[in-house]
Amino acid sequence: MSTAIKVENLIKSYGQNTAIKGISFNVNKGEVFALLGINGAGKTTTLECIEGLLKYQSGKISIDGSFGVQIQSSSLPENIKAIEAFTYFCKWNKANIDLSIFESLGLSEIKNKQYCQMSTGQKRRLHLALALIGSPDIIFLDEPTAGLDVEGRAALHGQIRKLKSMGKTILLSSHDMAEVESLCDRIAILKDGRIVFIGTSRELTAEMHSKISLQIKTSKPLEKTDFIHSTFTGTDSEYTTFITSNIGDSLIELLNFLKNSSNPVVDIRIVHQSLEESFLGIAKEGK
């Protein structure tokens, strides 16, 4: 599969603070690729370096194809109408004023609405329409659904899927695990300016589900003990928690230990980490 975007060892600093610490990844043509991370992880900075909005200190970025950009932190004059903004941007890009983009994004009804009168969702869709002017090969979307209600998110997700079906390459940033899992082919999780996971959503799901939380309640409180197959993570008033990726061996090891120490088991819970918890684990702790 040919590469649409290639980022090699990208480094971006703001004064003494290095926001992006040498990240590398490829986005294939026709792929929906997500940069996922909590706030401050470096998603927007990475995107803006690729888009040419930010200068970076070192690294190499190659883009094969035309691109359109929808960024989170952009606005338009308060009194401009949707159709005027669209026409103005079309004219500067020497593109046909293709109102089918407006229709497909549900903007026809609000084409004469001023920017200051639009809802957040309508503004997002207008910025997406502006990004689609000239039918670019690659589309950058920076947190496209941030601040949208359920209906707005669903509509925008539908648009992204439609663009993918048209063969467009999409690079988006998000901090919403569920959104990324449902939309994207591959994901890079950023933490403190570094990529801590890169792979398909299936690989991410598999990795996430491999971590199981084993919660055990005993007659006597259990002190911190590390085992071969499980790791002690903490204890509350009742349960002591271990993390394992091998539930069978962990249970045998733990039950044998408790039997030998004459500490009867009162209750055992086996809890799979949710996708959200696992993502937060990766994004915050790099695990």
Binding site: L53, S74, S75, F89
Partner: peptide, 20 residues
Amino acid sequence: IPISETYGSKVKKAYQIGGI
């Protein structure tokens, strides 16, 4: 006023990415 509203805000960024 409109000059400051354009250059002192995110409007500038929108124009920039829009090729203006």
